[in-house]
């Protein structure tokens, strides 16, 4: 193969990666792009919290890029490049879809326009990043790799954040917390832990985790599932705080909403361990 052909091949692969990114952004962020509360949050949420969310998204994308990426990334420099591309795709996709749906209009103040696009760009960029691993056929599945313990927890945080972003802004979240009694919360909490452990270890999905035959089951439960649930709850607190759902509420009410949101967050964390 000549060098020019090799470059062309490389270019084609890159463009395919971009296409998958856009597809991923659309698939995974469309529910949020079409959620009313997300449009409103775009203009009324506190700017410092939006800023924090946008900043947090950067290390998250770099971590995901290092793990899956548009290309097989070897260095952190390439991971950073891929993260920037994913963020870019997220912003452009949000801009195009919000405009197409008539949610961005000429007469709106700049802060509203920017806020709406910026908020949506976070889930869209995660979607763009996941696009490759979800939609592309991975050629390098057979290789052996090791995930460090903090890396495993961070992956769970990424999964929990993605599902929390879907659900935390909706009013249904708060209505559920108001309707539930404390007994319901206890059940939801235990259910979250059980499902989290079951999905990863008991049910034999491709990508599921297994233990060495001589390791008792509770080893993984203590080392991975319980910390994973704490991570999911912490992400729930963060998501609720960012979307201003905690202000002026009593500790018990806060705990109820955290447990309600912790349910999808825990499943997201478990899914991240299976998929990524």
């Amino acid at each position: 193969m000549t060098r020019a052909e090799g470059d062309k091949d490389e270019f084609n692969r890159f463009v395919t990666g971009l296409g998958r990114g856009v597809a991923g952004a659309l698939f995974l962020a469309l529910p949020m792009l079409m959620t009313m509360e997300m449009w409103y949050l775009g203009f009324y949420m506190a700017r410092e919290r939006l800023f924090l969310l946008l900043l947090l998204n950067i290390p998250l994308l770099i971590l995901l890029a290092h793990r899956i990426g548009f290309e097989k990334t070897f260095s952190w420099r390439e991971a950073t490049r891929d993260a920037a591309i994913a963020y870019g795709i997220g912003i452009l996709t949000s801009l195009v879809v919000l405009t197409a749906l008539g949610l961005l209009r000429g007469g709106m103040p700049a802060s509203e326009l920017v806020g709406k696009v910026a908020l949506q760009s976070v889930p869209a960029s995660i979607g763009a990043m996941l696009g490759r691993s979800q939609l592309g056929h991975s050629e390098d599945d057979a290789d052996t790799r090791e995930t460090s313990y903090p890396g495993e927890l961070l992956l769970m945080a990424a999964g929990a954040l993605f599902l929390s972003l879907n659900i935390a802004p909706t009013d249904e979240m708060m209505v559920l917390a108001y309707k539930m009694t404390i007994w319901h919360a206890l059940v939801v909490s235990l259910l979250s832990i059980a499902l989290m452990h079951g999905f990863v270890y008991a049910v034999s999905f491709i990508g599921g985790h297994e233990l060495s035959p001589q390791t008792p089951w509770w080893h993984a439960f203590v080392r991975f599932t319980l910390p994973g649930y704490v991570v999911a709850l912490a992400i729930s607190v963060l998501a609720l705080w960012i979307f201003e759902r905690l202000d002026d509420s009593s500790p018990v009410e806060i705990m109820l909403s955290v447990i309600v949101l912790g349910f999808p967050a825990a499943l997201g964390a478990a899914a991240a361990r299976l998929i990524l």
Binding site: D141, H209, L211, Y229, V230
Partner: peptide, 28 residues
């Protein structure tokens, strides 16, 4: 530490003590 092979992941049998500590703190 988790080892991934052919899409399956296997948890290591002799983990670092920090994993147990994290697990214990989480349990508490």
């Amino acid at each position: 530490m988790t080892r991934s092979e052919q899409g399956r992941h296997r948890e290591s049998h002799d983990p670092h003590w920090i994993e147990w500590l994290t697990g214990l703190v989480s349990a508490l």
